[in-house]
Design a protein around this nucleic acid. Structure first.
Lengths: 342, 342
DNA sequence: GTGAAAGCGCTAACAC
DNA sequence: GTGTTAGCGCTTTCAC
């Protein structure tokens, strides 16, 4: 066995020569584009193994005008939901024979979006999955769509784009109703950075309040950093009318609870707090978090399945919606001053 | 402005024709390989803008035999340290003009490692950064090294590979000494899946115990799932000799604390627990976690810097080691039965 | 089935 | 400086 030299890669013609066949024949056994007689076929396979030959993706892409890479475009790669969604996409992309590359769009500004679009298109990927979780994602989706097959991953259905959706609004409404059902007069909302005008989490909350004929309280905004939720927790500890809070995600809920705690309030005794996502630590927290499970990895897998369907020209999958289950745990309870409604 | 058609990409010769120059001249303004007169130069630039031309990465790679993509090889993409390290690598790769693709190695088995190696090499990347955090990472590193410029990211220095290191053993020893200094007779250790025979976290702990002349207690192993640490927490709640525990990471510490809590033990009153990493939620947990900060994103950036140096043939950077700072918070305290040693 | 010939979009080497 | 000529490593006609 001769280990390949770092500076002289083995090419298809090396294989052809060793196997005693023509270059196109090697190509045929590689791609399966046409039948090759059993004898030649195995000689080619042997030569490939002996030389440790690996086809060059660049040459294949150039010659065939299709590639086996897909792009994952995201505003972020490491936050919980993002990382899980990326994992899901990559997993099923790999299972389908695709390699995934990552393009991060820092902001929704022209320059960043154009840079990301360029980076994606230059690779001539077979398709792209965009995490439409934030404004950069929304902008990148719009920029990419006219050029290449794209699937969006998101929390709210939208028409005109193949997509996989994790329907957040139902779960947010259910969580809000749960809190109201415990006897809270209203439910406040601490919002994480939204993807557009309003996310499903916020609209579900708003919907449930409207439905119950309750005035919609002012929204508090936080960044992704749990410390900003901590500050809000400290602040609302001083507001006696706040007895129930629905947070945009579990990290926010944990930060908020810690802030309330440090300001002398107990959860759920003084204030009920619900999170969103069912982060792996949500059940470990003290108190454990009432929340709605979001399976981001599954969302990613669905997205890749959509892309696959799109590429193979199969019947476009029906709108792919997953309804997140609600989990009632320790962080929510009846308020001090009221008995449950029913 | 004519938006490019989805099916007929603009090529370099379209640009050349519109600008009234030869193809290589366009290439020259693109790559800056040779001087081009100001007049032609700007005509080319205009043509590029007008046509919305984007060079094909495949063609460039094939013709020039160098690519501007780098590979990130990892056993996992979404767990905290992994995701942060990947973020760091991608960030600085992008800043240096590289696109990052991701290859996941599920296990350290022959097949998976070979598949990952193939996937990487077929892309002919400029270089690769391997997350040497687990056995799959270690195996992939070994398989890749003879073929292509590789940098390893890890927790323990190792010779023979360009690498960036987050030196865990000092911090683990410091944490162990902190616990002993509080008066604990010994410190137990709950270990997360190690990359090889022993990780820096474990060896630092072992070292500090040896140094203090204390017998090394049996190690408890957990998976990455905090629920497995929860089980250990429940179990050790029944062992009265366990008063201090050093955990392999913060998620494990949180699971362990929750398990202790559910089994009736309080932290730090009954048992002191230290984590590792300074996860964003470590400071929010109740109790907040004593831990050692690991800046994985910075580790990733250092790794990419190493790779850059390697590629440009610059003097190889000195071994890149970061010493994680120790953070004393609420989850550790003196044991019930003893006063602090000093 | 199989080889010869052509060409994918670009860069490199070479003259001028 | 600039155009012409050759490929890069493959896949794709198209004969046979």
């Amino acid at each position: 066995m001769t280990p390949p030299r770092r500076d002289k890669p083995v090419t298809i013609s090396d294989v052809a020569q060793l196997a005693g066949v023509s270059v196109p024949t090697v190509s045929r056994v590689l791609t399966g584009a046409a039948k090759v007689s059993e004898g030649r076929r195995s000689r080619v396979l042997d030569a490939i193994a002996e030389l440790g030959y690996r086809p060059s993706a660049a040459a294949q892409t150039l010659a065939s005008r299709r590639s086996n890479v897909i792009g994952i475009v995201a505003g972020n790669t490491s936050r919980y939901g993002y990382a899980e969604a990326i994992r899901g996409v990559e997993e099923s992309a790999r299972a389908a024979g695709f390699l995934s590359f990552i393009v991060v769009v820092e902001t929704a500004e022209q320059d960043d979006v154009a840079a990301a679009t360029d980076a994606v298109l230059r690779q001539s990927p077979a398709g792209v999955v965009v995490l439409k979780f934030d404004p950069p994602g929304v902008a990148a989706l719009a920029a990419l769509q006219p050029h290449i097959p794209v699937v969006a991953l998101s929390g709210v259905p939208e028409s005109g784009v193949p997509q996989a959706v994790l329907d957040e609004s139902h779960a947010a409404a259910a969580l809000t109703r749960h809190l109201l059902g415990l006897g809270h007069r209203t439910v406040h909302h601490v919002r994480v950075p939204p993807s557009g005008k309003e996310d499903g989490r916020t609209s579900g909350w708003r919907h449930a309040l409207n439905e119950a004929g309750i005035a919609v309280p002012e929204i508090r905004d936080v960044s992704w950093d749990p410390r900003s939720a901590y500050e809000v927790g400290v602040a609302i500890a001083g507001e006696s009318d706040v007895t129930a809070v629905l947070c945009g995600n579990d990290e926010t809920a944990m930060g908020l609870i810690r802030g309330l705690h440090d300001a002398g309030k107990r959860v759920p005794d003084d204030v009920s707090v619900a999170g969103f996502d069912d982060h792996p630590l949500a059940a470990m927290f003290l108190p454990s978090l009432t929340t709605a499970r979001q399976d981001f990895a599954e969302l990613g897998r669905h997205g890749m399945a959509q892309l696959d369907a799109l590429l193979t020209g199969a019947a476009p999958l029906a709108l792919d919606t997953v309804d997140p289950p609600v989990l009632i745990r320790e962080s929510t309870a009846a308020p001090r001053d009221a008995a449950p409604r029913d």
